[in-house]
């Protein structure tokens, strides 16, 4: 039971990570490979708040504050990294964001207050299913509401054709930065929830590999689809656990299995499971009436 609860909790955290990365990569079309870096910033700052500065208030309020701390510091890191990097395109942007997220990790390794290379211990166990999934819902609502507004359409237009968007009076750099910063912020929030579930953080837990896995979740579900990112996150958190049933060797080959899965998917459905579309329950009912 404990195992299932833990897995469900992790799934929620990865849903937040995937949905927020989807805003940057899928909705805005900016190829970022630095999500693990923002996740780490949020995890460490959120945990640092709880360990060193927690207020004498109920735990859930402290958790809330630490989530906000995680969000704001990761968003701030997003500004610092986004402003220079978002002038780059495609592969260059991917490489630059990847580089920055590794820099973040190396900074953490050398920061003794948060444990450095030994890891950050004694983080209070404040995360639970209720709060994680509350944040999952809040994240999805906020990001979906932004996407379905004039600001979201501005962000989407950049993905569709940046020059045309700029020619329509859209300040493309501002909106690219906005999408990047909001995405980074929510990754930070997920980081804080993660820290208070694990109670222990280590810089090696935030390597570039995690950026790739989060990106895989987004691509698997369909770049640009929120529902897709959610499904992608669920599949790629549950799948490695299922692989364990097939024994230790298969489980060690998990990345190979991912790659195969991805290749098969790209051959069968190049746009991901959902393409750019959202799961629309209402339309299912409409169809079923026929």
């Amino acid at each position: 039971m404990d195992y299932i609860a833990h897995l469900t909790l992790n799934t929620g955290i990865f849903i937040i990570l995937a949905v927020s990365l989807n805003l940057i990569n899928g909705i805005c079309g900016q190829f970022s490979l630095g999500h693990a870096g923002f996740w780490a910033v949020g995890a460490y700052t959120g945990a640092a708040y709880s360990v060193y500065m927690a207020l004498p208030v109920p735990d859930f309020i402290n958790l809330f504050i630490s989530c906000i701390v995680g969000f704001i510091s990761a968003a701030f890191a997003g500004v610092i990294i986004g402003v220079p990097c978002l002038r780059l395109r495609g592969d260059y942007l991917a490489i630059a964001t990847l580089g920055f997220s590794e820099i973040i990790r190396i900074v953490i390794v050398n920061l003794d207050v948060v444990g450095g290379a030994r890891g950050f211990t004694n983080i209070p166990n404040w995360s639970n299913l209720f709060w994680v999934y509350s944040w999952v819902v809040i994240t999805i609502i906020i990001i979906a509401n932004i996407i379905n507004s004039t600001h979201g359409r501005a962000i989407i237009s950049i993905r569709e054709d940046e020059i045309a968007a700029e020619s329509m009076g859209i300040h493309t750099f501002k909106y690219k930065t906005l999408a990047f910063v909001i995405g980074a912020g929510f990754a930070g929030l997920a980081g804080s929830l993660f820290a208070h579930a694990q109670q222990f953080l280590h810089p090696n837990g935030f390597t570039f590999l995690w950026s790739v896995i989060i990106l895989l979740m987004v691509i698997l579900g369909g770049l640009g689809s929120i529902t897709g990112s959610i499904i992608g996150a669920i599949i790629l958190t549950v799948l490695p656990e299922l692989l364990r049933f097939f024994g230790e060797t298969i489980s060690q080959w998990r990345m190979v299995v991912y790659s195969l899965l991805l290749i098969i998917l790209m051959l069968a459905r190049p746009g991901g499971i959902f393409g750019k579309h959202e799961l629309d329950i209402k339309s299912w009912f409409r169809r079923s009436k026929l």
Partner: peptide, 10 residues
């Protein structure tokens, strides 16, 4: 609609 974005006031 996207072309009307910059005149939107929210």
């Amino acid at each position: 609609r996207i072309a009307g974005h910059f005149r939107m006031n929210y």
